[in-house]
C-alpha cells in the first residue's frame, strides 16, 4: 500500500517535472483569479488579460534566466543592473551613434551576456561565492550604465520600436509579449528535453555527484550565468520598447522580483528542484496580484503588505505540503 502511494507520486513527479512542486502555486493562481473575477467586474476581460501579459514581459523574460541560475543552486543579483546597462548600450548605439536597431540590439545583448561570463568565471575559476560575485557585478554594471550618459536618459528611438510594445498584432499579441512567450517555450523545452537542461538538475541536486558522474559542472555553470545575463539584456530590450526611452536607473531591485517569482513558482533556493513551468506561474501570480490590487484601488502601502504576505504564504504552503 505504501509502495503504491509512493509509486503514484513518483509517476506524477516524473510525468510533469516542470510542474513538480508547482501544483500549489497553480491552485493559488486559480483561486486568485476567481477571487478577482468576483471582487471586481474589471478583472475578467480580454483587454485586462492582455494588459497583464504586457505588464509581466520584463519580469517574465528575466525570471526564466533566474530559474536556471537558482536551479543549479546559484543566485544572480546583477540582473536588474545588467538590464539597465543593456538598455543604455542600446540607446547609445542607436540614438547617439546612429547604428540601426539590427546592429544595436545584438550588440546590447552581447554586452549583457559578457557580464554573465565575467560572473560565471569569477564563480567557477576563482571560487567567489555566487552571491558575492553577482553583488559585485550588480554594482559595477549599474555604475557603467550611469557612465554612458552621465546619468541622463536617452530618448528618440525609431517610432516602430515603441509600437512593438503597443500594437497588438491580430488584436492579440504585442511583439514584446510574443518575445516572452517564445522565451517561455524555448526555456521549458530546453529544461525538460535537452541534455544541457537535465544536467542543471543534477548540478543543483548535488554538484559533487554531478562532477563525479562526468558532468562538466564548471562549463554548465558559466553557461547558465551567461544565459541569465543574456535574458536580462533581452528583458531590457523589451522594457526599452515599452517605455520608448532608456534610463540608467531602470531595474533597481528587479533581481528581487525575479527571485520572488522563481520561489513562488516552487523552485527551491537550494537548487535541484522546480523549473520554468513553476516560474511562469509565479510570474503570473505577481502580475495578476499587482493588476488586481490596482483594479481594487487598494492603497499603495497596503499593496506592499499584501505582496509580501503572498510570498510568505506561497513558500510556507509548499514547505508544509512537502513535509506532509
Amino acid at each position: 500500500m505504501v509502495a503504491d502511494v509512493k509509486e503514484r507520486r513518483g509517476v506524477a513527479g516524473i510525468a510533469l517535472p516542470s510542474l513538480r512542486g508547482a501544483t500549489g502555486p497553480l491552485i493559488g493562481l486559480i483561486v486568485l483569479c476567481l477571487f478577482l473575477t468576483f471582487a471586481t467586474d474589471k478583472f475578467l476581460s480580454v483587454r485586462n488579460f492582455l494588459n497583464v501579459l504586457d505588464q509581466i514581459t520584463v519580469l517574465g523574460v528575466m525570471a526564466v534566466g533566474m530559474t536556471m541560475v537558482i536551479l543549479i543552486g546559484g543566485i544572480d543579483l546583477a540582473v536588474g543592473s545588467v538590464m539597465a546597462l543593456a538598455m543604455m548600450v542600446l540607446g547609445y548605439l542607436n540614438v547617439v551613434a546612429g547604428l540601426p536597431m539590427g546592429i544595436a540590439i545584438p550588440l546590447a545583448l552581447f554586452v549583457a551576456a559578457l557580464n554573465g561570463l565575467v560572473a560565471g568565471l569569477l564563480i567557477t575559476r576563482f571560487n567567489v561565492p555566487a552571491f558575492i560575485a553577482t553583488l559585485a557585478m550588480m554594482s559595477i554594471t549599474r555604475g557603467l550604465a550611469n557612465m554612458i550618459t552621465d546619468g541622463q536618459q536617452i530618448i528618440g528611438f525609431p517610432a516602430w520600436f515603441n509600437m512593438m510594445a503597443i500594437v497588438r498584432f491580430g488584436g492579440f499579441l504585442t511583439l514584446t509579449v510574443a518575445v516572452m512567450i517564445v522565451v517561455f517555450i524555448v526555456g521549458l523545452l530546453y529544461q525538460r528535453y535537452r541534455h544541457g537542461g537535465r544536467v542543471l538538475y543534477a548540478i543543483g541536486g548535488n554538484a559533487e555527484v554531478a562532477r563525479l558522474a562526468g558532468i562538466n559542472v564548471q562549463r554548465a555553470t558559466v553557461l547558465v550565468y551567461v544565459v541569465c545575463s543574456f535574458l536580462a539584456g533581452l528583458s531590457g530590450m523589451v522594457l526599452a520598447a515599452r517605455l520608448d526611452s532608456v534610463q540608467p536607473s531602470s531595474g533597481v531591485s528587479y533581481e528581487l522580483d525575479a527571485i520572488a517569482a522563481v520561489v513562488i513558482g516552487g523552485t527551491s533556493l537550494s537548487g535541484g528542484t522546480g523549473g520554468i513551468g513553476g516560474t511562469i506561474i509565479g510570474v503570473l501570480i505577481i502580475g495578476v496580484l499587482r493588476n488586481g490590487l490596482n483594479l481594487l484601488s487598494v492603497s499603495p502601502f497596503m499593496q506592499q503588505v499584501i505582496i509580501g504576505a503572498v510570498i510568505v504564504l506561497a513558500v510556507t504552503a509548499e514547505t508544509y505540503r512537502k513535509r506532509k
Binding site: G205, N206, E208
Partner: peptide
C-alpha cells in the same frame, strides 16, 4: 554526499 542525489529519483 557523492554517490546519489538523495531527493532525485532513481531513474
Amino acid at each position: 554526499l557523492q554517490g546519489v542525489v538523495l531527493d532525485h529519483s532513481i531513474a
